[in-house]
């Protein structure tokens, strides 16, 4: 191996170590995680949304051909949501636009992520795994309402 080759090899290695360092930084310091094994959650077959603390909510969402239940969720700004997702039939995918939320909904398993909504607005989500003939219509929204909006009640509309 000549000098230029050795240099190229070490630079490539360093580049990859740098990338890897960035991943570890994001994981450890910023605490940005990917979904993991969930074993402390009872399997569920219908959707639920309830308040679990002053600004925290738990949402159990069910994906099925060809709708998410609930398909519209209303929450006040500043809410932190513990989101659980499963599928009742085949595999679906779930991603909230402008939010780092991306989950596969797989039958026989529960997926989980925590997400905080600091900005009011409508967050669109669409199924991103092929789930049959009407896959392209399977979508919904999360509506984050501003403080003091009439009633500001939370609830799930089907």
């Amino acid at each position: 191996m000549d000098k230029s080759e050795k240099m190229a090899l070490s630079l490539s290695g360093m580049l990859l170590v740098l990338f890897f360092g960035a991943i570890m930084y994001a994981a450890v310091v910023e605490d940005i995680q990917v979904p993991t094994c969930i074993t402390d959650m009872e399997p569920f077959t219908s959707d639920t949304l309830f308040q679990s603390g002053p600004e925290t909510y738990e949402l159990q969402m069910v994906a099925r051909m060809w709708a998410f239940q609930p398909s519209t969720v209303r929450l006040p700004v500043g809410s932190t949501v513990d989101m659980y997702l499963t599928s009742q039939d085949i595999t679906h995918g779930f991603m909230i636009e402008n939010k780092n939320v991306n989950l596969m909904a797989v039958p026989g398993a529960v997926n989980y992520i925590q997400v905080t909504f600091d900005e009011p607005g409508e967050y669109f989500f669409a199924c991103h795994e092929f789930c049959g003939a009407a896959h392209h219509t399977m979508s919904g929204r999360i509506i984050i309402e501003e403080e003091g909006v009439a009633g500001n009640q939370m609830g799930a509309l089907q």
Binding site: L16, N102, M104
Partner: peptide
Amino acid sequence: MDPAIGSQWKLIHGIFTFAVAL
């Protein structure tokens, strides 16, 4: 983004993926 696989194992597969970029 799948459920039912520990994130620490996903991370290890990630490390090997960087190895195969070399």
